[in-house]
């Protein structure tokens, strides 16, 4: 169960809040939505203010030493670049061993057994554990990345843009691998992606972000989009745009009024969704 309370990254992420949620969360947004800063701030890779609770515990307020113990065990990340998690100097197996030993969870054999199990779960050949990342094709590297991020059964796994650098066939394969992994682990995924097709299959709750702020969220956002930006996004008629002063989408919005251009919409609940647009409530 995760919860965000006004997580802010200067000039990138504006007071991101998310009420307690069970299951997977999908963060839908373009490259300029700054959604990646949510994962970076949650993993404490950049400085931020606010709170991020996992099962009621604020992981951003613990000491850096304590947080190191949380990594891989409580939260982990599947970056969009499949080679980012690995060092080229060590074989794949060593990465699993290093994490298990550094967290005092077990010995080398225990780590190797776990690694073997997760590699098999993802349909990879066991010999892959003796390889180095430069010997892997992108799809195998991505699968190994999924295995590494989930083998200690963390409570939350951040999954960044799975389609980055992959073609449609490869996206299909990775999407299925994530669904396989979801069915055998107890982890919740926070899926940050620009493809609504991926989000729809992996997320129970969807948040739409635009230029660093949440503009719509709910369980049925992809089936009943309310915000004009979400409608354009899903309808395929989105165009590159610059941020407006009030509502950030006001420069491109077909329903934009002078109020939208001056004031930031406060947001309101419509059905089961929350939407930040002056069109609502009717």
């Amino acid at each position: 169960m995760i919860e965000y309370d006004c997580l802010t990254v200067k000039e990138k992420l504006e007071c991101f809040s998310l009420r307690q949620t069970v299951g997977n969360v999908g963060i839908l947004g373009e490259e300029n939505s700054n959604k990646e800063y949510l994962a970076k701030a949650s993993m404490r890779l950049i400085s931020s203010t606010g709170h991020f609770y996992i099962n009621g515990e604020d992981v951003l307020s613990v000491s850096p030493e304590e947080f190191k113990d949380y990594l891989w065990v409580k939260l982990s990340e599947i970056p969009s670049d499949p080679y980012l998690l690995f060092s080229e100097l060590y074989d794949i197996k060593s990465h699993f061993v290093e994490i298990v030993i550094s967290h005092g969870i077990g010995d080398k054999h225990y780590a190797e057994e776990l690694a073997l199990e997760y590699v098999k779960l993802l349909g990879l050949e066991t010999s892959i554990l003796d390889k180095y990342t430069f010997q892997l094709n992108p799809i195998d590297a991505k699968k190994v990345e999924i295995a590494l991020a989930s083998f200690l059964n963390p409570e939350v796994i951040f999954v960044e843009d799975i389609g980055s650098g992959l073609n449609d066939v490869q996206v299909n394969v990775i999407l299925n691998s994530l669904l396989d992994m979801e069915s055998v682990t107890g982890s919740s995924f926070v899926v940050l992606d620009n493809d609504p097709a991926v989000i729809s299959r992996l997320a129970d709750y969807v948040v739409v972000m635009y230029k660093g702020e949440t503009i719509e969220e709910g369980e049925d956002v992809l089936s009943f989009p309310l915000h004009p930006y979400t409608q354009a996004y899903l309808g395929g008629y989105l165009r590159p745009s610059v941020a407006g002063r009030g509502c950030k989408f006001s420069m491109s919005c077909p329903f934009s009024s002078s109020k939208c251009k001056e004031e930031r919409p406060k947001g309101t609940n419509v059905g089961s969704s929350f939407v930040r647009c002056n069109l609502y409530p009717w």
Binding site: A197, S200, R201, A203
Partner: peptide
């Protein structure tokens, strides 16, 4: 693939 159901495989 387009928007699908939760848990739907590609």
């Amino acid at each position: 693939i387009g928007i699908g159901k939760r848990g739907e495989r590609a």
